[in-house]
């Protein structure tokens, strides 16, 4: 059975590292993997998405509407934006952090209330967590991405040691302790 995970967030939040860690884990488990990333323009604070697909044989590198098993959202509004891409019985893991788009900052649009409630009302299975304070506890607000990867790891049925190995491979040595701590804290939420 092929599986699909979408990692969505705001450019600059570190979604690419998260997808790389996930990719490394899946390779270790012997899956065939395809990952599709966003480089370039939207990395400047725009809405970003990475597709991760794995299984026996993967043809298309992208995920389309109604196809994702898991959406890992680094930000509430982004979870809602990409919800249509999830299978109706999929799972949303969402960081409750809110980041205002510029249109909201300058008063041209409003950041809607009750985003997570609306996602639940649509029938989605939602796991919400506030990853920012956890990342700060681990040592840096920038570690939000690894906290979220930790939280997702718990729901994949892949043993923790493989995840830790992948974290070790993917993050620079100088930030290793911080990221291992962030992963552990996320895993134990």
């Amino acid at each position: 059975m092929n599986k699909s995970v979408m990692i969505v967030g705001v450019g600059g939040q570190g979604t690419l590292l998260a997808s790389r860690i996930l990719g490394a884990v899946l390779l270790k488990k012997g899956y065939n993997v395809k990952l599709s990333e966003v480089h370039g323009m939207s990395q400047r604070g725009g809405s970003v998405v990475t597709y991760v697909k794995y299984g026996d044989e993967i043809a298309s590198p992208i995920i389309e509407k109604g196809e994702a098993d898991i959406i890992l959202a680094f930000e509430q509004l982004e979870a809602a934006r990409w919800l249509e891409y999830m299978k109706p019985d999929g799972k949303v893991i969402v960081n409750t952090q809110k980041i205002d788009p510029m249109s909201v900052v300058i008063g041209d649009a409003v950041y809607p209330d009750g985003v997570i409630d609306a996602i639940k009302a649509a029938g989605a299975d939602v796991l919400e967590l506030d990853a920012l304070p956890v990342a700060v506890e681990a040592g840096s607000p920038k570690a939000v991405n690894v906290v979220l990867i930790g939280a997702m790891a718990k729901h994949t049925g892949i043993e923790k040691e493989t995840w830790l190995e992948a974290v070790r491979e993917c993050v620079p040595a100088k930030f290793l302790d911080l990221n291992i701590k962030a992963f552990e804290l996320g895993y134990n939420i």
Binding site: S42, E84, S103, A109, G114
Partner: peptide
């Protein structure tokens, strides 16, 4: 598909 019933502002770079 399923959809969140809210207006989602765009997020350009």
């Amino acid at each position: 598909t399923i959809k969140a019933d809210i207006d989602i502002p765009v997020r350009p770079p």
